[in-house]
Design a protein around this nucleic acid. Sequence first.
DNA 1: CCGCTTACCTGTCAGC
DNA 2: TGCTGACAGGTAAGCG
Length: 306
Amino acid sequence: MPELPEVQTTVNGLNKVLKGKKITAIWSAYNSPHYKGKENIKDKKYFLRFRKNTLNSPVLGTDRVGKNILIHLKNGVTVLIHMKMTGHLLYGKYEKRKEEWEASEKGPLQDPFNKHIRLVFELNNGKHVVLSDMRKFAKVMYIKTKDLERHSDLLSVAPDSFKLSQNEFVKRLRNKKSGKIKSILMDQALVSGIGNIYSDEILFETNIHPETDIDAVDNKKLEEIWRVSRKILERGINLGGDSMSDYRNIKGEKGKFQNKHKVYRKTGERCLKKNCPGKIKRKVIGGRSAHFCNRHQKLIKTKKRK
DNA sequence: CCGCTTACCTGTCAGC
DNA sequence: TGCTGACAGGTAAGCG
């Protein structure tokens, strides 16, 4: 998904509309035998339990842990939503036509990327929160609120750049003895919230080649990454997230961070750094597309250790 | 433990 | 106009 700024944008939106509301009905199009016996609403049996545990209890508030959305209910249950690649939550008035849900009013909610509706929460004010999720990768489950921090889904999520102090951030990354810096920044167990777009942008800004081994990145540089990651993620939040692809805010509107990309999906373009004659290259690193400048992001080889 | 591949899915786009 | 393959904000599981 949606990386930290997009998840935060969604959470901010939900907090404005959801507090005190109750879910009065739930409809789901998810159903896959692949998830049989798993804690995931894509398992039909689990879905029935999910529904029983989440209906008719007022929403206390919504927050974010890494890229996970948590919706806390008064009855001691928390709904966890991970939007993965193409999921995003929308709020508005919807109606069901045959087996398809449609936004009742003309506007951004009818944007094509908002029409892959897989899950619908009907609220007691007659409106709906729906999950549009083209690729059906999203994960939705419920957890007893008091068990949240012991739950495996959240235990494996590290604090994000805003929660970590500079020292903690450096210490965490320093603990990794090897690995490519881009993959490390995207490792949610080390520091959460950063995904493919923001990692590319952070490494561009800090002049680091994405394949640089963590061993070749000194502490000063890690401190800089911490500072820049906060700056860029904050910028993403202030711009309402990144809508290069599917992501939209809960009104169905685009964010604006995609207009500020310096490298992500800019293959072949000239480097935007002042006085840099470089060109943007694309290379698959750790199974993901990395974008970087071939001049000011030089690969520095690991110092050989004995 | 590490890193790579596969799987979960649907859709779009480039090239033949 | 098809078809085929590459690619897409993420992550878990399986493998060597």
